[in-house]
Amino acid sequence: MDKNFHLEVLTPHRKFYEGDVEEIIVTITTGQIGILKGHIPMTAAIGTGTLQIKKDGQWREAFISGGFMEVKRDSVTILSSAVEWPEEIDVARAQAAKERAEEKLRQKKSRQEHLLAEAALKRALMRLRIASKYQNI
Rank of each mutant, 00 (worst) to 15 (best):
M1C: 03
M1T: 11
D2Y: 03
D2C: 02
K3V: 14
N4I: 07
F5T: 10
H6A: 04
H6S: 08
L7F: 10
E8N: 15
E8I: 15
L10P: 11
L10F: 06
T11K: 02
H13I: 05
F16C: 05
Y17V: 08
E18K: 14
D20N: 15
D20I: 04
V21G: 05
E22G: 03
I24Q: 05
I25F: 00
T30G: 01
G31H: 12
Q32P: 00
Q32C: 06
Q32F: 05
I33R: 14
I35H: 03
L36K: 01
L36I: 04
K37M: 08
G38K: 03
I40D: 00
I40P: 00
M42Y: 10
T43C: 03
T43E: 04
T43W: 01
A45R: 14
A45H: 10
A45P: 05
I46L: 11
G47M: 02
T50A: 10
L51S: 04
Q52P: 00
I53V: 14
I53P: 01
K54T: 01
K55V: 12
D56G: 05
G57R: 06
G57Q: 09
R60K: 07
E61N: 06
I64Q: 01
S65I: 03
M69N: 02
M69L: 09
E70W: 00
K72P: 00
R73S: 12
D74L: 03
V76W: 05
V76F: 01
T77D: 08
T77W: 02
L79D: 01
L79C: 09
S80V: 01
S81F: 06
S81C: 05
V83L: 01
W85H: 01
R93S: 09
A94G: 11
A94I: 09
Q95D: 11
K98H: 02
A101F: 11
A101N: 07
R106L: 14
R106H: 11
K108S: 09
R111A: 10
R111Q: 09
E113Q: 15
H114K: 14
L115G: 11
L116I: 13
L116R: 15
E118P: 11
A119V: 11
K122Q: 09
L125D: 06
M126P: 00
M126V: 08
R127K: 15
R127H: 12
R127E: 15
I130F: 12
A131S: 14
A131Q: 08
A131V: 14
A131Y: 13
A131T: 13
K133D: 14
Y134E: 13
Y134H: 15
N136W: 06
I137H: 13
